[in-house]
């Protein structure tokens, strides 16, 4: 396990110090770390464990339990495709196949240029406008392969 660079260590320590007094703070701490760094690095686990007086195993157990917490640095743009029943009924699997081809990666992977990460998600709550896609926290409904390409092109143009 690589230790965190000093700047990231400082971020993690500050987050733990800010939140440790709250009831049941671990998830809050992990959310704050991911919001600040884009993921929860393995090197953050001992710092969090020490700060919250938990074992490393307990912290690792929580980080690894929840699908939302990322263990590696994501691409510049996070593309989540809903793969649940409602979106399946409107072609989500074909859209996923298209997205894989378009980006050249599978689910849980990041493009070589670091621009896009692709993730499956199980319901975005947009089931009357299926299929749904979320890109960088923005929700899109009734997404066709053509619209997907346009959204990704917009994303590629953005910083």
């Amino acid at each position: 396990m690589d230790p965190l660079p000093p700047a990231e260590s400082a971020v993690v320590r500050r987050i733990v110090a800010d939140l440790k007094g709250r009831p049941g703070p671990l998830l809050e701490v992990l959310h704050a770390i991911q919001a600040a760094l884009g993921f929860v690095p393995e090197g953050a686990v001992p710092l969090v464990a020490e700060g919250l007086n938990l074992s490393r195993a307990e912290v690792h157990g929580v980080v690894s339990f929840y699908h939302y917490f990322r263990h590696t640095r994501p691409g510049a743009h996070l593309v989540s495709l809903c793969q649940a029943e409602s979106c399946q009924s409107m072609g989500a699997q074909a859209l996923a196949a298209h997205a894989r081809r378009r980006l050249g990666i599978d689910f849980h992977q990041t493009t070589a240029d670091g621009r896009f990460s692709l993730e499956p998600v199980y319901c975005l709550g947009n089931c009357a406008c299926s299929p749904a896609v979320m890109i960088d926290g923005r929700l899109h409904g009734r997404v066709t392969p053509e619209r997907f390409d346009a959204l990704v092109a917009d994303g590629a143009a953005a910083p």
Binding site: L27, E28, L30, H31, Y66, H67, Y68, F69, V121, Y122
Partner: peptide, 8 residues
């Protein structure tokens, strides 16, 4: 408000 983390 407390946030979940993607666990059904």
């Amino acid at each position: 408000v407390r946030l979940g983390a993607g666990a059904y």
